[in-house]
Amino acid sequence: MDSGRSDGASKRRKMPTAVKVLIAGGFGAGKTTMVGAVSETKPLRTEEILTDQGVGIDDLSGVEAKDTTTVAMDFGRITISDDYVLYLFGTPGQRRFWFVWDELSLGALGAVVLADTRRLADCFPSVDYFERRGTPFIVAVNCFEGARRFELDEVRMALKINEEIPMLLCDARKRNSGKQVLITLVQHAMATNAKKRAEGATAH
């Protein structure tokens, strides 16, 4: 859809194209920290109110009794150029809010799953989700001070991550580290996209 161009808006003003990347992972894995470190402003927060309509589709145990529930998402913006704006969304708490995840991952370039080696299992649901959905993702292992240093291979085995999925160590507080994580993700998403296209082409 391109409602801007269809009614002559481009003559007045060229709108940039907005794209998004998701930052997922368990509670306290550093999602908002990473969003803030690479964004041009401090993380912003937006809320979605889920009404009855959104409830009952997936596992929303614990919220059935409520008519509405509010989900907060932290996000940031990186102005890439006059033509592109990149938004980074920290995904809200897992399990209860798949409804919001579905909306966030729709059209997303890809996702970063932040892993905290102190609680590796916390990122299982994110990995499962993006695998099932076919969203390109990478795993970034956030190196917390005082946490045991894992070898990436150990983490890969523990999480049962396919060899094709890039993994890297990062420091979510550092802009350069976050930037490297995003570059790795976009390269991976681009390669995945090219591969799917090639497969699609040979199928015809």
Binding site: V19, I80, L86, K179, V186
Partner: peptide
């Protein structure tokens, strides 16, 4: 993808 990569 290329534009986003260059920008990053």
């Amino acid at each position: 993808y290329k534009a986003v990569l260059d920008g990053l």
